[in-house]
């Protein structure tokens, strides 16, 4: 049964209600989009408008200068720019793919095997989210040093995989959106656990792991490695971009240009994952 079939039965609002409703949405949308608009607009401002007094929000005479200045700002790097790009792409892809896979598998097992160990595990997963990271840095650093992953790609990847948010999200979603009868049916048909996970549960929990994909990508895309990476050849785009554009008001235009450029990949992933979420919804007719 398609979800839409029930729509005509839904309750309707008064005209006044509709007006209030639209007003709230529009105001909220305008409020939240301010920084995005501001960044894009500022990235096209010429120098005199950046320094103008009184300040103007919108650009009067747009210019590409801030963007054109970037190649030069980024030319005298210790390591060629392409290296940072490759590092970022590699780290971001590995983290996103591995985190979605590793978290979804753990969520699946937690849903399917209910005993005191998985219960304890899931309790720890939820409460670990609440522990402040600051004091964990020292013990974590010691562990990283012990297993020898400091200043390697693993220093980006492994700690990211330990994030419990993904397991929590995917498990919560599977719990209420994957009907047990379907799993029973698949087992009667002779499917093993691996096959059930891959062919049945993952497609049904697509909205959850697509959301995790986006979130994981965003976090990984912004990763600088912190104090775990010191070789220049292992550093990522955000760290070099940050250091190049961080100085002076005259460069604030270029800084905005960088912000806008760096935002493009997350926006693309957002579009890809969210449009897919909507698609899954309209065709998900399997319910018990």
């Amino acid at each position: 049964m398609k979800k839409q079939t029930a729509r005509y039965k839904r309750f309707t609002r008064s005209r006044f209600g509709n007006a209030v409703y639209s007003l709230i949405l529009v105001l909220a949308g305008l409020f939240t989009v301010i920084p995005l608009v501001y960044s894009v607009v500022t990235s096209f401002k010429p120098l005199d408008e950046l320094l103008a007094f009184p300040p103007k929000f919108f650009v009067v005479r747009p210019t590409f200068k801030n963007y054109i200045a970037l190649p030069e700002l980024l030319s005298n790097l210790e390591v060629p720019l392409s290296r940072y790009v490759m590092n970022t792409l590699f780290v971001t892809t590995s983290i996103t793919v591995l985190q979605v896979l590793v978290s979804s598998m753990a969520a699946f097992v937690t849903c399917q095997v209910k005993n005191r160990w998985t219960k304890l595990f899931f309790l720890l997963v939820q409460f670990a989210l609440l522990y402040n990271g600051t004091t964990l840095a020292v013990p974590q650093y010691l562990i990283f040093a012990k297993i020898g992953i400091i200043d390697t790609y693993w220093a980006y990847i492994l700690p990211a995989l330990a994030s419990t948010m993904g397991v929590f999200l995917v498990k919560q979603f599977m719990e209420s959106n994957v009907p047990e009868v379907l799993i029973e049916a698949a087992r009667i048909d002779g499917a093993g656990a691996g096959r059930i996970f891959w062919r049945l549960v993952m497609p049904l929990s697509k909205p959850a792991w697509l959301t995790l994909t986006l979130f994981s990508f965003q976090t990984a895309w912004a990763a600088t490695g912190g104090n775990l990476i010191f070789s220049e050849s292992l550093k990522t785009l955000p760290s070099v971009m940050g250091s190049v554009v961080s100085s002076g008001l005259a460069r604030s235009g270029s800084a905005m240009a960088v912000t806008v450029l760096m935002m493009i990949p997350p926006v693309l992933i957002y579009m890809a994952t969210q449009s897919n979420v909507l698609e899954t919804m309209s065709s998900a007719g399997i319910k018990d």
Binding site: V102, S103, M105, A106, F108, V109, Q112, V113, F121, L124, V125, A128, Y131, L136, P139, Q140, I143, I147, L158, P159, L161, A162, T164, V167, R187, G192, A193, G194, F197
Partner: peptide, 30 residues
């Protein structure tokens, strides 16, 4: 008992990667 022995092994292997990083990088530091 829902899962066969083979399935139980599969399930344990599926849990293992997350459990390993979780214990090592979260539980031990906490």
């Amino acid at each position: 008992s829902k899962w066969s022995t083979g399935d139980k092994i599969t399930l344990s292997l599926m849990m293992l990667p997350f459990l390993a990083v979780f214990v090592l990088f979260m539980i031990v530091p906490v």
